[in-house]
């Protein structure tokens, strides 16, 4: 595997930390009831979003999921505006009308998170059709979880994408659970990559806890897709550290299983690897941690101090 240079290593580590600290902060705000509603946290899965996004361009598209904070941050998201959005503030990236489940930023190519499992698979496929019709060289990464691979629109869309050779990477984040039901209790085959065989679509699985592995895998397939070869299906094996949402007691999984995955935590293993390879120093990684902590604190303060939308905003933005 190719090792990154210092600048790239810094960037990957920093972005993974941004997501982790962001999510830890959201959990804190939820427990203190400063954040209302719910949030599905991406902690544990950082290597997937960061690795994938480091392999595509600024003007490439993504579609995201109900667990979408990580995708939004990794797709050049404005952390202050994302934090404000989750608190429903006027300064949020969607003016406080979307929230955690609907983070979107079209100026960054993020076509949006989604409150409905699997629903963005069709949208991603349409964006890919649009790219092809406009004779553009963009690609789309369509993120979804293992649970979404049991939805009808997954099959409908992937069939069409393969048939029309659309430039889309279907990237399944297999974090082993659809809410509480394990993937093995919900889907009839153990190897999810086989699901794309029905569409004659190539697939590959990748270690979703290893940011460099994800980066290399997505880079290879993004090149393939960009050349007009049609879509592909990637399964990134990963784990979410928090429960499905804040009310989840995690009775469906064991402490041993959680430990197994936490021992492979990308924000711990990646800097160790970079220090061992002489790419980053211990001081540098500590400095990055400090920078990001500070950045998240500032974003939190910004979000908390931001105003809520005015009542007049209720009826704006419905129609053009």
């Amino acid at each position: 595997m190719t090792l990154p240079d210092k600048q790239e290593a810094r960037r990957l580590f920093k972005q993974m930390l941004q997501i982790r600290y962001f999510e830890d902060k959201i959990m804190e705000l939820l427990s203190k009831n400063i954040a209302e509603g719910g949030s599905h946290l991406y902690a544990g899965m950082e290597a997937v979003a960061v690795g994938a996004m480091s392999s595509i361009n600024h003007d490439d598209y993504i579609t995201s999921t109900h667990r979408g904070h990580g995708h939004a941050i990794a797709k050049d998201g404005d952390i202050k505006a994302l934090m404000a959005e989750i608190l429903g503030k006027k300064t949020g990236v969607c003016k406080g009308k979307g929230g955690s489940l609907h983070l979107a930023d079209l100026s960054k190519g993020n076509l949006g998170a989604n409150g409905i499992v699997g629903a963005s698979i069709g949208i991603a496929t349409g964006a890919a059709l649009s790219i092809k019709m406009r004779k553009n060289s963009q690609v789309v990464i369509c993120f979804f979880g293992d649970g979404a691979t049991n939805q009808g629109i997954f099959y409908e869309s992937m069939n069409i994408a393969s048939l029309w050779k659309l430039p889309v990477i279907y990237l399944c984040e297999n974090n082993l659970y659809g809410m509480s039901v394990s993937v093995h209790r919900a889907t009839s085959i153990s190897d999810l990559t086989k699901k794309s065989l029905a569409f004659d679509m190539p697939s590959e699985s990748v270690d979703g806890m290893d940011v460099l592995a994800v980066k290399e895998c997505v880079k290879k397939w993004a090149d393939y897709v960009r050349k007009g070869n049609g879509p592909c299906f990637i399964v990134a094996n990963t784990y979410r550290y928090y429960g499905h949402s804040r009310s989840d007691p995690r009775v469906y999984r064991t402490k041993e299983e959680e430990k197994f995955w936490k021992d492979r935590d990308p924000i711990i293993t990646f800097p160790v690897k970079m220090i061992e390879a002489g790419i980053l120093t211990n001081d540098e990684t500590k400095n990055i941690e400090g920078e990001v902590k500070q950045e998240i604190e500032e974003a939190t303060e910004y979000a908390i101090n931001s105003p809520y939308p005015e009542p007049e905003e209720l009826y704006t933005d419905l129609y053009t």
Partner: peptide
């Protein structure tokens, strides 16, 4: 579902 979904994605882009 995919027909409409594809329409939405294409319309947004």
């Amino acid at each position: 579902s995919a027909i409409v979904g594809i329409g939405i994605g294409a319309a947004m882009t």
